[in-house]
């Protein structure tokens, strides 16, 4: 019996095509969106505007890459919006107090983010509280802590901060560079390291992973550290472009981040998703936003469009899940 025969047995070409389309729904939408806006306004396809899309996508994108780690385990991290605010704020205080430069500040921000993520991990792994509740609580806690530190006042960074945010290396804007480095690193970790593959295993079958000898607690906790550190970095990079930090910075952004990750193919049930997908998801959202501007569409339609696109992508995911569930239904009799 040929293994290939077994796989395609009883599936018509149209079914195979449907599976393929569902699996790559986001890419298809992305292609359609770019084509549509390109026809509407050819200027949209110019390198500068596409570069702009990626640059603006980097903020949500970096955090979405971290979020993908969490979603892969079947968890969720609602605190990223607050981490985006608090971690760079701590870095700002440190820079001011110790006269640190921007690169050192960046390191402080990422470390602070990692610590905040470790707090999430502690409650989720040690005390076995579900991730949704833990990170909902820290969403308020982290922002509340920042508000208390600043008395809700805006925090101004030194001018070097802005210089860093607007700098570029070899003609590539720094935010894009950071985005690319994070994406590449995440891709390598997820697809090429034992840690990465164990994340996938955990998301597929937590009990099975435990039985197979995977250190489930360590893996599960680490993804929240990764997520928060990524959110901190994302926040720092965007703030560097603005030069100051408002009390409302990052508020509600957790939903953009989750949306981007899900749009990139990450499943909320765990086990499915990739770093590359998060990049695509974040970029797609930004493409739509900027594309609508180029096409001269009423700006207030933008959230509706974003919602619709997320809806379609998630619908595709759920349809795919259902098809998988049906194909896995337990068979008592060999169906020849």
């Amino acid at each position: 019996m040929s293994p290939l025969g077994a796989r395609t047995l009883g599936r018509s070409p149209s079914e195979v095509a449907l599976d393929l389309a569902l699996r790559h729904a986001t890419y298809l939408i992305f292609l359609a969106v770019i084509l549509y806006f390109g026809i509407q306004s050819p200027a949209f396809l110019a390198p500068e505007s596409l570069g702009n899309v990626v640059k603006q996508a980097s903020f949500i994108g970096i955090a979405a890459i971290g979020m993908t780690f969490v979603l892969l385990t079947g968890g969720i991290d609602l605190s990223v919006g607050s981490v985006m605010y608090l971690a760079p704020l701590i870095a700002g205080f440190a820079m001011e107090a110790f006269g640190l430069g921007v690169p050192a500040g960046l390191v402080v921000a990422v470390c602070a983010g990692a610590v905040l993520g470790a707090i999430n991990a502690l409650f989720i792994v040690r005390f076995d509280v579900i991730p949704f509740i833990v990170t909902l609580a820290t969403l308020f806690l982290f922002r509340g802590f920042g508000t208390w530190l600043t008395s809700s006042r805006q925090f101004d960074f030194a001018p070097e901060m802005r210089a860093f945010g607007l700098s570029s290396v070899l003609g590539i804007p720094t935010p894009i560079l950071v985005f690319a480095v994070v994406a590449l690193a995440a891709h390598v970790v997820l697809s090429r390291t034992p840690f990465g593959r164990q994340i996938y295993a955990l998301g597929n079958d937590a009990e099975g992973a435990r039985k197979a000898g995977v250190r489930v607690g360590v893996v599960k906790g680490s993804v929240y550290v990764v997520s928060s550190a990524s959110a901190a970095l994302a926040g720092f990079v965007l703030i560097a472009q603005i030069g100051r930090l408002d009390a409302a910075f990052g508020e509600g952004r957790e939903f953009d981040v989750i949306a981007a990750a899900v749009l990139g193919g990450a499943s909320l049930f765990g086990g499915v998703g990739s770093a590359w997908g998060a990049v695509i998801g974040a970029t797609l959202i930004q493409t739509v936003k900027l594309g609508l501007v180029f096409a001269g569409v009423n700006l207030y339609l933008q959230p509706i469009m974003q919602g619709l696109i997320i809806f379609v992508a998630v619908l595709a995911d759920s349809l795919r899940q259902r098809r998988i569930a049906i194909s896995r239904r337990r068979h008592i009799r060999p169906s020849a």
């Binding site: 593959r197 996938y200 295993a201 597929n204 079958d205 099975g208 992973a209 499915v272």
Partner: peptide, 9 residues
């Protein structure tokens, strides 16, 4: 009978 394999790997 119920296999312990990770279907996504």
């Amino acid at each position: 009978q119920e296999l312990n394999l990770f279907t996504n790997l």
